[in-house]
Design a protein around this nucleic acid. Structure first.
Lengths: 355, 355
DNA sequence: GTTAGTTTCGGAAACATTTTCGGTATCCTT
DNA sequence: AAGGATACCGAAAATGTTTCCGAAACTAAC
């Protein structure tokens, strides 16, 4: 087969079964108006010849091609991959296949790849960003449905999915408070990211709803790195601030935080409870102690987005910005002194739709 | 355009340009025997109508479809993604697009996805594994060229690419020795991985070529984790072994090693030089100090593999196992006491072909 | 035995493009 | 101006599949 001269075509099957190509087609596609026996003959012949229909000839008749395109801003981003896996899982299980195109943060390249996808006649496109900052819409120039994931489109008439950062921040603060922490600081990432802003203000609101505020007066901003986490902890200690809980803008920061606390002789969770964000297991589970953190459920988001695109291709659209719920994963970094991990205030359920 | 009734087809272009479809086709495809002016008329018309040829109709005439498939064992593996990015870069820049299918380590699913790819009429397939252990060949049942990346095929007649683990181990040992280290230990990952075995035996050979041996007598095996790295260091210290250099089977292990050394009061690089493997920047650059390590150049491997597949599609094959060269990235974890990072023995050049 | 109705099958058109090949127009030469 | 060569163009076939619709065969009823 490796060097087979010719693939079998429907005509070959028809001849082998002793029927016309029309009948063969109907038999293989389960159309009615074809005799039970003849259908079986055709199926047997197709099986024996190892026939599979030429999708290009099929696509000439059907408008649907069975391929969708995923246009990523940056494949190497840790947010992109889980979503992509969810998408692939949702589509790959069926018979539609997924074409990836990585723009590498280059808008010119993005334009080019988009044209390539359209030329390939994909049935729909998923635009996969790596931050929460809204991006310009592409939908105007595209003749197929588009769904935006993680990075929403600026257009409210587009369909976008993004994790509910505010919910995550509220969960984190509520959890710390439920664990008895009252003197809470927040060490965040770069302020130019909308995700950072959303988390900050939602954390602030959640604290206020408990009659509290940030022990440091305001949120500390830096970059999304371990070293910033360490540095921020030392700054808090140098300022002689009394704190017993820290909410971090990412697990990477949180890992730096717990490392610095340990090195400075503070026990986590005994002296200070720490909550991260992302549930990046590389950090959250290998940290000492493992991190309580917010899981954005990105793979699930990928499946959601895939389902939405499939629906849009089928004709039903739900425009707007869909914020998908996140969940808190309790681990030792906020354990109670009795070793308990969870508490009942940990769940805030339900999706919010802020279109 | 979003809801345009009909895409323009070649006939529309031909009518707009006042020529026949045959001439329009020739004009657009750069065939000769068409007047300069008429060609321009056709191109203008196509431009104005925003015409792009239906690839399915094209594929009916050409055997080549302009799509290749990537069949991954596990998309979430950190080895797979860089290779995939290299592949995507090499192909996506042109007009061939990349379909991904993630088998999720499920052989049944792999079989199914392979059939789907073949049914889609991909021009070639890249099989992308996540470990160095040779895998069964797929090529028998596939009518298109197949190239194996990272995980080689057991068949020597297949074309496989894999990083040169032995070269990496030799580079690491040579580097430590060139830095004046003589009492060297090796902390490796799980012994069932061929990559681990290759690194161990090549490291052993390199030590012998310097008249040395492992200070611990033999290689220490564990899992590929930070905690194993920490644990192994403590075992070495508890055994009262005198060592001044450690070669680690992965950067993750190495990070655990340098953390434990610091916590036990040993200075890196002053007391002990540490070399990792993988150049996983998440660990190698954020470690304290940053890690000297072996870069397997996986993205480059992806481009190589893509080029090889393109060649195979064009008809020229180079069967066999191709070991791609790796390189040592010097950082502070093996710095000289004067702060120098590199030394002239750091490079062993050239690819080896061990088919 | 004829008619009506039902089931089953096949010819041919349609999809959008490329390619072959025959035909026409143009140009050059004498 | 005629002949021939050459450049250019277009009709038609071909790619593989699906679908429409007419034909054939078979059954049922009178």
């Amino acid at each position: 087969m490796t060097k087979a001269g010719k693939r079998p075509v429907l005509t070959d099957v028809a001849i082998a079964a002793g029927v016309s190509v029309a009948t063969a087609s109907k038999a293989l596609n389960g159309r009615n108006h074809v005799n039970k026996n003849t259908r079986q003959r055709v199926l047997d012949a197709a099986e024996k010849l190892n026939f599979s229909p030429n999708p290009f000839a099929q696509a000439l008749n059907f408008p649907v091609t069975g391929t969708i395109g995923v246009l990523t801003a940056d494949l190497s981003s840790r947010f992109v991959l889980p979503i992509l896996m969810g998408v692939e899982e949702a589509f790959g299980a069926g018979s539609t296949s997924v074409i990836i195109s990585d723009a590498r943060k280059d808008l010119v390249r993005e334009k080019f790849l988009l044209q390539t996808l359209i030329a390939k006649r994909v049935d729909g496109i998923i635009v996969l960003g790596d931050d929460a900052n809204a991006r310009p819409s592409l939908s105007e120039h595209v003749p197929v449905p588009v769904v935006y994931a993680y990075t929403p489109s600026v257009l409210a008439t587009d369909c976008s999915f993004t994790p509910d950062n505010a919910m995550g921040a509220a969960l984190a603060i509520d959890h710390l408070v439920a664990r008895g922490r009252r003197k809470i600081a927040m060490i965040n990432g770069e302020p130019r990211f909308e995700a950072a802003q959303e988390r900050s203000s939602a954390a602030h609101a959640a604290l206020q709803s408990h009659g509290l505020g940030f022990v440091s007066g305001e949120v500390l901003y830096g970059d999304w790195s371990e070293s910033w986490g360490r540095q921020a902890v030392r700054a808090l200690l140098n300022a002689r601030l009394d704190f017993d809980g820290i909410f971090c803008g990412s697990d990477q920061i949180a890992r730096g935080v717990v490392d610095a606390l340990r090195e400075e002789g503070r026990s986590v969770p005994h002296d200070v409870g720490v909550v991260g964000f992302d549930d990046w297991e590389l950090f959250s589970t290998t940290s000492r102690p493992p991190l309580t953190t917010i899981d954005m459920n990105l793979e699930h988001m990928g499946r959601e987005v895939a389902g939405e695109l499939a629906a849009a291709i089928a004709g039903v659209t739900r425009p707007g910005l869909h914020k998908l719920p996140v969940r808190l994963v309790p681990r030792e970094s906020t354990a109670g002194l009795d070793g308990t991990l969870a508490n009942r205030e940990d769940s805030r359920g339900g999706a919010t739709n802020a279109s």
